[in-house]
Nucleic acid binder design. Structure first.
Lengths: 198, 198, 198, 198
DNA sequence: AGATAAACGAGACGGTACGTCAGGTCTTAGA
DNA sequence: TCTAAGACCTGACGTACCGTCTCGTTTATCT
């Protein structure tokens, strides 16, 4: 029952969509996620509330799309200089800087958090933002593994999590500082266990 | 100015406090954190709203106290059989079970998440719930380190995070399953790097 | 400025117009005037909203046209048997029956009411529906006056209102029942005057 | 089911109630009944919307109470100079003036009209405002009847309607002007009857 | 034991935002 | 070119909670 016929997406206003994305990102930076409201987004975007409700189920979904749009074409990838430790440290240090940027961090954190209480949203967040970031590490590790720098029996997925998990936890839970020194230590400690056994 | 004289805590109604804790925990399990409301807690507890506002600043704070109360005397600690890997796996496997229990998981997740958007709450959450849990690991590792099972130069705090971070991330972000096999792999991989260099 | 060129009425779709009338009358009977909506009429008629807005300024105007269409060729007129009292009673009794018919009454009442708050609509309602009904009485009275049954100095318009006004008030305001006995009393009293017979 | 416990009227804010009445009457005069909104009343009164919804079921009900409050203690009654025609004319002429006053007329008309589409409201409107006004005439007529100025067999209720009905119809439907001359004619005709004087 | 005063339950209050509905305008496709 | 379809902006709807503010009513000391 209750199947509202879904709107015809070919007629969708591109103008409104962009305005909504811009408004959502601007507002989440200004007032934070908790005080972000659909009414606020609509007003800022110069758009009717219904136009938002027509296309998204929640403010979190709007923000996810807005943010995804924003980081499209990111896919920076990781260098492969042949030195795995150096490459990991290089990218993680960049992440340290990124996560220190309040403007970028606010919506990302908001999404991570909103996802935690909403399984469906979580799935989309992971698929669209989190997983691609993880895969960058997995691929680089796999390359190292093929060259024999990492033990053949090592689960590179778990190995990646061993580097990213602590980083994420410190950031999200504020259980510690995110510094260059920290990520260096982390990489060294993690890699020490990955080397092929002599 | 504006210093509301704080309420006299000696006159506080113990009955009401318990009722509020019970109501908060019951409701967060039934409707989830987002739909948990102060009005709902007050109604369920048979308590005036003001009685809640008098003693707590937010629903998250209520929940934190309620939950803390609930796990008081936990402090289980970790066995020390002399086999570090086995001990870590033992406790982590218990955590796997614990985090699979919807009733326990709901408020814990809610608090973790609420903290992410509220630095002050976060600090108390970490201090009261998260950090004690981490310290259990840190202490066990330190013991192992003193016995020379772990390299003397290893930062046991970071080493602990290398085990708990991935676990937490999988749970919170739902980026993977939490199984016995997973935590075993995790422990083995982490410890491989911790052994003292020959 | 702003003079929208009026639409070319020669190209108007007769099919749509009829469908709109039918839908409007059906809906006003089903849901009442307050819950009658342009959207509802359009949907029921299988017509775009714009097609309604192009030709009518308001739902009341649609209903007025629809209803007028429906009662076209009414103009029943009043018999002239030579007995004024009997003729008046005859027609008023027919009205009693008519106003008891929910299906006929609903849109008529709706229009009377909508008119009360909209002078322009009111004018058209009076001109097209109400006044013709009144004139039927006025003519019959005038005929009686010419035959000397009614005083030559009597204002037959006012005399007519003296019969129809009470009837309308009872109906519209629900201040009393509309029965055969009532209209008989009304006619007798109006014709006779209140003074005691000498 | 669904019986929300009714609010405790002893705790009701008199201040708010007055402000709501004032706002409702002011707004209905300024923008008309159709554009009168609960939000508008609340805003103008400096009151939460819920405070209105708590105590009244609709904007019409608010207006009815507001208006009733306003005309409380009216109950002017009718003079009894012994000359029935003169007394009726006197009061009706006063009504002519009253109904020409836009400020008084707007809410009264609005209520009459709202009642037409809402039987329950109608009942209260009639009981509180309309019927008392009618009874003033009925009583005066009855007095005249007891003195023999009016035939003993005359139904004074119907006789009253014969005077007030036409007046009301002209006003509500705008079928004619409301002048002193009109009400004089009406009274004379009603009292005299239509038959030619012998 | 009685008086005093704070916490208590209850819930009305001024507000904000919700998610829905309809109004009236504007755009696109099709006949 | 007019029509059907329907997306759009607007604004009001009625509801849910917010956090504050009285109201009596316990309850727990302190005379």
């Amino acid at each position: 029952m209750a199947n509202k016929t879904p709107p015809d997406s070919t007629r969708r206003s591109e103008r409104s969509r962009r305005a909504i994305y811009d408004a959502a990102l601007a507002l989440v930076g200004e007032v934070g996620y908790n005080k972000l409201t659909i009414e606020g987004i609509a007003a800022r975007a110069g758009v009717g509330k219904q136009t938002i409700y027509r296309w998204w189920p929640s403010k979190a979904a709007v923000l996810l799309d807005a943010f995804t749009q924003d980081v499209e074409g990111y896919e920076a990838g990781m260098p492969d200089t042949g030195d795995l430790a150096a490459d990991l440290k290089f990218v993680l240090r960049a992440s340290v800087d990124e996560f220190a940027d309040e403007k970028w961090q606010a919506p990302y954190r908001a999404l991570a958090v909103a996802g935690a209480n909403d399984a469906e949203l979580s799935a989309r967040f992971v698929e669209r933002l989190l997983e691609p970031g993880i895969q960058v590490y997995v691929k680089r590790m796999r390359a190292a593994q093929e060259r024999g720098e990492i033990g053949a029996d090592v689960d590179v997925r778990v190995a990646t999590e061993m580097v990213l998990g602590p980083f994420t936890q410190r950031w999200l839970m504020r259980t510690g500082e995110l510094t260059y020194a920290y990520v260096d230590t982390l990489v060294d400690l993690a890699l020490a266990g990955l080397r092929p056994r002599a």
